[in-house]
């Protein structure tokens, strides 16, 4: 099949978009436009993002885009279903440790619970002053939305690879190669009508840099490269974090229950 592909900087990484040639460049342009919107809405670093407006709110309802409500609903559901192995309420702790910027606002709790986030159509309310951080899920979700945008623009098949968060749809098989901890590259099979995400957890001995542990109390991510297959990219993205934190014996069954598979 003839395909058209482009790579541009987006979401703080290089993003490759590809589609059947018949859909052409306009389909890819809609994908990149969709990714730019995701960046504007869900970046923790950007003080003007919807996420920062939520984090800076004083307990009232914050009007947001419908996709933001959808993303937060997915995040909340996965946090509950994973028993906190996926946690999007740890922004307060990360700000305190200096791994995320402080945009001011009410003094934040180190972390919260899924119930701190109240949702209704077009609006979000924080029950307690938590700082939400969507790093573990928003990039995947943005990839899903970009694929949807390409479909709507007439692409029968295509893919997005946003620096390792990948989704393929339609009649395309995408060969994957993965870089291991040693920097070496090895083939990693073929992806078809599915999503794939990888996270590397690097262990390091260092006194000067704060730990950035995002697991439930007492559980730290385990060093290694964690790759997960799922139907959608948001799920694959988020489940790499679950895979890294879940204890060995429970990892496989937990991922299967949550809709993913270790790759």
């Amino acid at each position: 099949m003839d395909v058209v592909r482009r790579m541009r900087p987006a979401l703080g990484t290089f993003v490759e978009a590809g589609a059947s040639a018949s859909a052409g460049l306009p389909a890819l342009d809609t994908a990149f436009a969709s990714l730019a919107l995701a960046q504007e809405r869900w970046s923790f670093q950007d003080p003007g993002s919807e996420l920062s407006r939520i984090n800076g709110s004083d307990g009232g309802w914050v009007p947001v885009h419908g996709d933001t409500v959808r993303l937060l609903r997915l995040a909340r559901g996965l946090m509950l279903a994973s028993g906190g192995y996926f946690d999007f309420t740890v922004g307060g702790a990360q700000v305190r440790r200096g791994s995320l910027p402080d945009h001011g606002g009410l003094p934040a709790l180190e972390r919260g619970t899924a119930h701190d986030v109240e949702l209704r159509a077009g609006a979000v309310r924080l029950q307690r002053p938590v700082r939400l951080v969507l790093d573990g899920i928003a990039k995947g979700f943005a990839v899903d939305l970009a694929c949807r945008a390409m479909r709507r623009a007439g692409a029968a098949s295509g893919w997005i690879n946003a620096g390792g968060d990948i989704r393929v749809f339609g009649d395309i098989e995408l060969p994957l190669a993965l870089r291991g901890e040693d920097g070496g590259i090895r083939p990693h099979g073929v992806l078809r009508n599915a999503a794939f995400a990888s996270s590397q957890v690097a262990a390091m001995r260092d006194d000067s840099f704060p730990a950035d542990i995002i697991g439930p109390a007492g559980l730290a991510p385990q060093p290694g490269v964690w790759s997960v297959l799922a139907r959608s990219a948001w799920r694959a993205d988020a489940l790499t974090k679950v895979a890294a934190i879940a204890p060995g014996e429970t990892r496989g069954p937990l991922l299967a229950r949550l809709g993913g598979q270790l790759a």
């Binding site: 592909r5 482009r6 490759e16 590809g18 990948i166 590259i185 950035d212 991510p221």
Partner: peptide
């Protein structure tokens, strides 16, 4: 007395028929 810290890092995943070099 060093502590072990853990960070999530992005992993490059290369996709496409020409996995290691792509001319766009």
């Amino acid at each position: 007395a060093h502590r072990w810290n853990a960070f999530f890092l992005p992993v490059a995943v290369l996709a496409g028929p020409t996995a290691y070099a792509t001319d766009y």
